[in-house]
Amino acid sequence: MASDTTTTTGAPAAPPPPPAPAGAPRSAWRGRRHRWGVRWGPYAHIAPFFVLFAAFGIFPLLYTGWASLHRVELTAPTDMEWVGLRNYARLLDDEFFWNALRNTVTIGLLSTVPQLLMALGIAHLLHGRLRGSTFFRVVALTPYATSVAAATLVFVLLFGRDFGLVNWVLGLLGAGPVDWQNGRWTSQFAVSTIVIWRWTGYNALIYLAALQAIPDELYEAAALDGASRWQQFRHVTVPSLRPTILFTCVVSTIGATQLFGEPLLFNGSAGATGGSDHQFQTLGLYLYEQGWVNLHLGRASAIAWAMLLILLLAGAAVALVRAWRRRTR
């Protein structure tokens, strides 16, 4: 479909027409056509993306918003009963929603903070003179290219209570077996491990690209001024990386808010409860449980929109803090 759209709507901006005998009216028409092409051609070229985005991005977003104002069940999605903001109001005293929100925040912190710090360190190592640097870059990106299902299933086995490798190693060290799945913190730690494993290399490569864009002169100047390696890192590297760090923070925050596959599969394919006590049920998982286990599409839609609003609120809060700091400086 994408290619169809490109060829038809892209035609006006196509390469020059075949040479024709020059004549005044004809060249005027060609000029007009040329101007028209210059003016609208670019839009035509980017149109396929926006058509797809409208169909698969905007429409579901708006329809979800509409559904969230109704009582609607998966058994009959066309029977919608208007309930206004009730689905949102009930989230306020929905213990499972708040539990999921708390878990999302804690798993988000547990996974994002170490992930970005480690990525920075790895980027620093890769940036230095290194034999076989391409090899290590590919290695860093491998977990990112691994399917979340395969990775999580392996981690489920690693963190198994009775026959898991992690507990076996702990046993060798003299520590008792840990029931990873059933503790609140142990399960969240385990889920975070999967996230860290998958995304650290990806962020490291982004940092590496930014590192390579920092001019060597800055380091030389700092060194001439007598700055130590640590001072160079603090006063040259980190300020230069600031926009990149901000970008990775934003992307990781969004990813953490929508965390779904890892906690779903960490439950050993036993459903979307996020553990017997919902101890690692994230917002994404709770949304899925409401929609596709309990079949309440309206309530699931409200959770989806609440997640978007939470992200927007977080973004607004960050913007406010930055504006305030700029003014007080």
């Binding site: 985005f53 698969f56 299902a149 929508q258 965390l259 978007l308």
Partner: peptide, 23 residues
């Protein structure tokens, strides 16, 4: 940013769905 959200969500959901639904 919204594009990112959608893309991220779609990717996560698509992956999870394929996984969850037995591929």
């Amino acid at each position: 940013m919204r594009t990112l959200i959608r893309r991220f969500r779609r990717r996560a959901l698509a992956l999870a769905a394929v996984v969850a639904l037995g591929a």
